[in-house]
Nucleic acid binder design. Structure first.
Lengths: 186, 186
DNA sequence: GAAAACATGTAAGTCGTTACATGATTGG
DNA sequence: CCAATCATGTAACGACTTACATGTTTTC
């Protein structure tokens, strides 16, 4: 995808960061969007440095421990903004396992099929519930423009609507196969 | 992901196929779900063969041209069914570019932001429209149980609901930033 | 006769994960 | 003092893409 570097630039652009900070951002609040590991982040930082998009200063933590605090360069800001305002999107459909399995549903019995769908529905609707709760928590304090929290809020809404659609789909499938089964036994 | 082999097994299970057939299925009607290239398919066929999940016979096409027609073995059927009825799902959030960009929206002006969202909305709603049309085409002839077309139909519905949710999200974002902008100018 | 489709592979490189490796600092 | 967290890397492997490579058959 090639956008890991830009996501990293975006984080460094918000505030000077160490590889560890970036790593934590990805496994923390950014995690639902993208969970990049430190083993990918450190090498990418090296490349960004080589390309002149970031620079770093060495900080001494405690007595000896060195850490590298990265900062975005002017060149880096330009590259980031160019990416941010770019328009090419190739939205690869994510191939989740359930969808692939459903494609081959003709090999399942009614009961197996139903069980699969219900199991999945359980998980997805639990997910949806927790996302809805999170949305509610924002509702007293919806982020304004030019606030870095606007992105968080919008992605949360995205996740919520996505999960909602997934549950709708599962319900649709359940209804559909129930209908077929009913017709058969008539 | 490790499920390519099972998707391939599923196709071969439907009917004996050559690597080329499988490749075409992936770039054709399966394409929206998964677009595996022949350069991935041929090596995987080799592995499936080594693992005894498929076997093949050589067919002569025309005068000289050899093709390998693969067939699923009993072992292959077992492996496929086990996967099909398995329950572990790790639904990685797909990281599409737009979502990542929206996460960093604080760096955009109102106009840039709006333009991005509108552009995306245009594409997504065109997509949604064409998916809705395809659904309508099915509607006189909704596939029954144990028909391989039931999978096609369900995945089509999945895609439609997914796109619908995406457009809803974009509309939500557009409304939201419009509100903010209005408040600002009051 | 030429183009499109059939047919099968390999190689190089990117992206990402899991595991290997190491050590310092902070808070209880 | 021990565990959690801070901090930074490398190696091996798997999934996937793009490009390299080759040849046949069908259709117009």
């Amino acid at each position: 995808m090639g956008s890991l570097r830009y996501a990293m630039l975006g984080l460094i652009n918000r505030e000077p960061s160490t590889g560890y900070d970036i790593s934590k951002a990805f496994s923390g609040k950014l995690g639902s969007l993208w969970n990049a590991k430190h083993s990918q982040i450190y090498p990418e930082l090296k490349k960004l440095l080589e390309d002149g998009l970031v620079e770093f200063e060495t900080i001494i933590q405690g007595e000896v421990m060195e850490k590298k605090l990265y900062n975005i360069t002017l060149e880096g800001k330009d590259a980031f903004m160019e990416w941010l305002l770019s328009e090419e999107e190739f939205y690869c459909a994510p191939n989740d396992n359930l969808r692939v399995r459903m494609y081959f549903c003709e090999n399942m019995t009614f009961e197996q099929f139903r069980k699969s769908l219900l199991k999945q529905r359980e998980r997805r609707s639990a997910d949806l519930e927790s996302l809805s709760l999170k949305v509610e928590q924002w509702n007293n304090n919806i982020p304004m423009f030019n606030s870095p929290e606007l992105g968080d809020y919008m992605l949360l809404q995205n996740a919520r609507l996505r999960e909602k659609a997934y549950v709708e789909w599962l319900d649709y499938c359940l209804n559909h196969i129930n209908d077929i089964e009913k017709k058969k036994s008539e």
